[in-house]
Design a protein around this nucleic acid. Structure first.
Lengths: 202, 202
DNA sequence: AGTTTTTCAGCACAACTGTGTTGGAAAAGA
DNA sequence: TCTTTTCCAACACAGTTGTGCTGAAAAACT
């Protein structure tokens, strides 16, 4: 057997080239050839790892969410509970160059997925990731509630949805206007929202 | 002079055809020819009203925001202040088929604009619309504050940003998962957020 | 050394892209 | 009726698209 290449690695390499193309020129410019050029290979090479373009798109989208998931899984849950919660939320928000790039890519895929009205591979994937993020919010809220830190009289399910909305809204704003919605500002707003949810005597 | 056509109307008609294409197949499919076919004309006709494709995209994006702005301007500011605030927020959220379509289109343009890193016509437009929405949130918060309805101890500027984030976050969720994030649910969450901002004794 | 299998570049093809140009139909004013 | 202006279809052209195919370089195994 010949030159053995780790397919998983090679596919990720190509997907990251696609990211750069999408980020620089939009998803409209993400053709097999432009991605190949960006990756420094021929179009034929790319097609060896991705038989068709839809597979490439789909894989690249999946890779974004896997990267985020990996980062979340790597978070150490130590310290005070509110601090832990903030650390998790911090990791999902696009507060540095790498995560801002990821978010832009994700946004491009999301918009494309919305087009495949109803069903479609991309759309299902969006649903899945959306659900994962909501699950994270749910576990954070549940953690606060179990610790008795949740302000009394609040409906837990409602607070999950609201936290999720604040999270996505702030992420959007951080991506759209990073000069105005700075990382510090986002953290401050996130903390302010949590304060409105956490019991006063804690 | 010959067959006089109202250019403004014709351009909107073409732009709406582009919307349908973008919504159905994504912004990648929005070529001069597909839009022309969708509108029921030849490509040459479309190019008579839009010399180049970027102008078409730009106009179609602008039209989305104008439609929203017009709807907002048509809102009557009568009734109790919280009711008025809710009515405004309601109008911006994608809670029916028409507004959900608009939001999907807007999302597609937004993602494309993010690609034109830094500057570009679309990017400037996003900034502008984003600012208008924030201004709306600001005037709503200010209205509450002036009426003494704002919970004491809250920083007004911060509440504006937070309301704006909740608004965009809920809009996103309503668009992504309309089955779960139903209009009623969105309204309930919006009200819950406002409740956390409005003084208890009101 | 020879064989075999993987990896990748290159070409081909039909379809599609944005844009330039041309010509003719249609209608309002003379 | 004739002219003039507007509107729009149609073609042309070079470049790009996704995808199928071929062949050769490269390296592990015999």
């Amino acid at each position: 057997m010949p030159k053995i290449v780790d397919h998983a690695t090679r596919r990720e390499e190509i997907a990251e080239a696609l990211w750069r193309v999408v980020r620089r020129d939009g998803i409209r410019a993400a053709s097999v050839r432009t991605v190949a050029a960006e990756a420094g290979w021929s179009a034929g090479a790319v097609r060896y790892y991705f038989p068709d373009q839809e597979g490439l798109l789909s894989f690249a989208m999946d890779l974004v969410s896997r990267r985020v998931t990996d980062r979340i899984a790597a978070i150490e849950a130590t310290g005070s509970l509110p601090a832990i919660v903030l650390r998790y939320l911090d990791e999902v928000l696009p507060l540095d160059a790498e995560r801002r790039a990821e978010f832009d890519i994700w946004l491009a895929f999301l918009a494309q997925a919305q087009a495949e009205s109803g069903a479609g591979a991309l759309h299902d994937h969006v649903d899945s990731v959306h659900g994962q993020l909501r699950d994270l919010c749910a576990s954070l809220v549940k953690g606060l509630a179990d610790a008795g830190l949740l302000k009394p009289g609040l409906d837990q399910a409602r607070e999950v949805e609201l936290l999720h909305a604040v999270l996505d809204g702030l992420a959007l704003h951080a991506a759209i206007q990073p000069e105005r919605t700075t990382p510090d500002r986002v953290r401050e707003l996130m903390r302010r929202h949590l304060d409105s949810v956490i019991a006063a005597d804690s």
